[in-house]
Design a protein around this nucleic acid. Sequence first.
DNA 1: TTCCGGTAAG
DNA 2: CTTACCGGAA
Length: 310
Amino acid sequence: MAYGAAMSEAAVDLPDERDAIRRALIEWYEDDHREYPWRETDDPYAILVSEVMSQQTQLDRVVDAWDDFLERWPTVGDLAATDRSDVVAFWSAHSLGYNNRAKYLHEAATQVVEEYDGEFPESPDGLSELMGVGPYTANAVASFAFNNGDAVVDTNVKRVLYRAFSIPDEDAAFEDVANALMPDGESRVWNNAIMELGGVACEKTPRCDEVGCPWREWCDAYETGDFTAPDVPTQPSFEGSRRQMRGRVIGALKEHENLTLDELGPKVRVDYAPEGEYGREWLRNLLEDLADDGLVEIEERSDQPIARLR
DNA sequence: TTCCGGTAAG
DNA sequence: CTTACCGGAA
């Protein structure tokens, strides 16, 4: 065990303790946990949709969007057959942010249909081939759809392991320990349980006693009172950001379909002025980036370019 | 104003 | 390796 020295010895070095730790978490999860509709299905397509939405949005806000999405595109074939711009427009209308992810999801659906004969791969490695599916999502879908994943390592899991077993803040260490802890062949319940623990008990502000954390007797942080969490990179404010302006462009084009620069500009910035600092040149630049991302298309006209969703 | 976060791309 | 990407809630 490469990180044994840094870990409380109870966690992995002593098999009896490790089994008790495993049982305690699974019992705690099965006794009571939040209900989400995607926890009621093993359809990999439905689960992928929920995971992509959950990457960016608090779970409670995902439920309605997930229901609507699956009602509109019930199968991976339905999604692959639709226009990408419809998916981006849906994403924007449901305030899901990160329009790129709508594009990735549509692309992934196309891959499943064209390259996998409509059947999802069942292994993490296979799932990783799909656009927008990284290590976390691959293991999540493999686990929840097929009970066939490795341990998921998201920021919740990192925070739990860092606190409970003093795991160093290094990706390889988290991955090793997470996998050592997970019982063989139980990725579905285990990954649900450990993320639930991070989500409702081991939050930034911990609630160990309130929710009856099952790991209190083994937890380093509970013993020492030091609930420091791994650093998460802080990000620049959203207000006035380029991301906000991109979102406004998508929103305006969803509503109007075709717009010239000067029609679009005022819908993006109230201070838009064709020749100003935030004018045609600035907007053109923003649109070029969106076009490079495949979200928008620009049609050159003799007078002014026209933009539309792609 | 800060928090929240997995993936792709440079 | 770093950076861009979204919007709603606390």
